[in-house]
Design a protein around this nucleic acid. Sequence first.
RNA 1: GCCACCAUAGCUCAAUUGGCAGAGCGCCUGUUUUGUAAACAGGUUGUUCUGGGUUCGAGUCCCAGUGGUGGCUCCA
Length: 614
Amino acid sequence: MVGLNIIRGKRMPEENYEASQLYRIRHSAAHVLAEAMLERFPEAKIAIGPPIEDGFYYDFELPATIGDDDIKWVERRMKKILSQRHEFKMREVTAAEARELFRNQPYKLELIDDLVNGRVDDNGAPSEDPAETLTIYTQNKFTDLCRGPHVQSTKDINPKAVSISLRRPAGAYWRGDEQRQQLTRIYGTAWETPAELREYSARLEEAAKRDHRVLGEKLDLFIIDSMVGKGLPLWLPDGATLRDTLERWLRDIQIERGYLPVVTPHLGNIELYKTSGHYPYYADSQYTPIDVDGDEFLLRPMNCPHHCRVYTSQPRSYRDLPLRYAEFGAVYRYEQSGELRGLTRVRGFTVDDAHIFVRPDQLLDEFKDVVKLIQHVFGALGLTDFRARLGTRDSESDKYVGDNALWEEATVAIADACDELALEYHIEPGEAAFYGPKLDFIVRDVLKREWQLGTVQVDYNLPQRFDLEYVDRDNERKRPIMIHRAPFGSLERFIGILIEHFAGAFPPWLAPTQAVIIPIRESHNDYARDIERLLRERGLRVKADLQDRNMRSKIKRRRRMNIPWLLIVGDRDVENRTVSVRLRTDEDLGAMPLDAFADAAAANVEAQSQGIGL
RNA sequence: GCCACCAUAGCUCAAUUGGCAGAGCGCCUGUUUUGUAAACAGGUUGUUCUGGGUUCGAGUCCCAGUGGUGGCUCCA
């Protein structure tokens, strides 16, 4: 097969992955998978089968639905082939020879055409250079169009370190194009040694336990209820407490930095979105208009149009800028049902939005301040594993507003700000917002899916479309520039990622319940209630567990809920006015004066410590 | 939206080739009064996702719908 890595945007584990033995093993395993599949389904059409992170896949057009039995059969057959010794033999062929060899394989013929016409290069990327020769690889009875490299022979692949049973067959469009044939993709994983395969399986199991959808249910944080609707999460009290804590924290930070609160409605007249350009450009992700007394209203997909109208509510002077309008604004977007996933992809979400209106001379500093704010937010939460992406306009697409000069200016401004902050970023064409380029902060969830969280965007277009102005020092009317920014991105997605990041064990300042008081006997209940009251007065989120059950079962229950501090109180504690502190890490700190605990806990929360030590 | 798979008590799961729908946890009642991960006893819990069909008989087989999961496409 050709090395058509249509894994756009997905990172390989290492820079030199393509040169590694592991890459060859996986590439070769993909060929063996194709060989076994052709034995099972001789009429199958083969597409492509590259190595990917942690494994490989191969796409097929199959004559029938594939079942578990087929997968098992193919896996057994692969292992059989791998246990024999078959060389991977490379041969150069002309295009004519290749067409003859693959005359019954339409996908291969299409690839051959593209290669010789120079429409794609070996990596599947657009290319100007026609390929001069093609290469094929043969092992056992299977030959594939492929640029290699491969292992020398099947004996270089340990059958015990290969598995194709990992995932069920999946649909995938030919060349990633929704309009084209849907193929059946079979994923496999392959490693150099069985021990590595076992580690990988263990890693998957561990990841499943951190899944925010699993923890969200276990910790009573949120539900997604089918009667309310897909992609519309309901926040339960503990989840809402976590969310509220984050909101208040960010709100305070923003007030310190001169942001001004605004509150605007979730609907707007369609004229608002025609003016902003959302209506045509964003149509695919909007809900159909709602008829209100003969006018059409849209559930808002973004908050910026409303904030632009706040700006125009008064004449503005150059002295007023920068103006920073902040709102935790709920937005609604139509997402295809198959794309919804827990809290990370929903249909209604809250953006920790702000729109900053600046003069041109203020743009760079203001942009840098925003990036620093985002870095501060990520840093405070220990989110260090992210990458910064500069999304630019795709020159071939027509889904953007505004002329090139403005886009160029905005893109340069972002790049300059990053350079001045020594922030590493990479450029991805086609990832811009429809009104301007943006800098995104991207993290991965437990299943290694990447999600965009924080974002900063520079926009010259909406100010123009809304005819925003300020009166400058020289008494001329000038156009402000707009910065759109959201450090969390969406509260829903951010918290989803945060749940996985902390594996549900939140630092005390975020934990919905920070401490539970567990009386040893019923006679200690009054003391437990006293402690509860006192700690609540200190601003701590605590509960006295007064249920009629024994202490040990209460400990077990609360441990499961990842409560940072358990305060066990018995006769000795009542007498000495102490609490016996047990940490969620199972460390027993022993008895400590109640006031000392209150001080230490309040200090820990105040400092937003990552640890739970006192 | 597309391809595939799945759906049994609040949760995790069982139910032989189609033959009376079960267990643990939870919940309720009583007994127990406990010093660091489950005291004991009894009780309760069902439109087997929904609607049709085949059959003497359907949790089990067939069709349609709904919801979920994995993947593709798309995106905060």
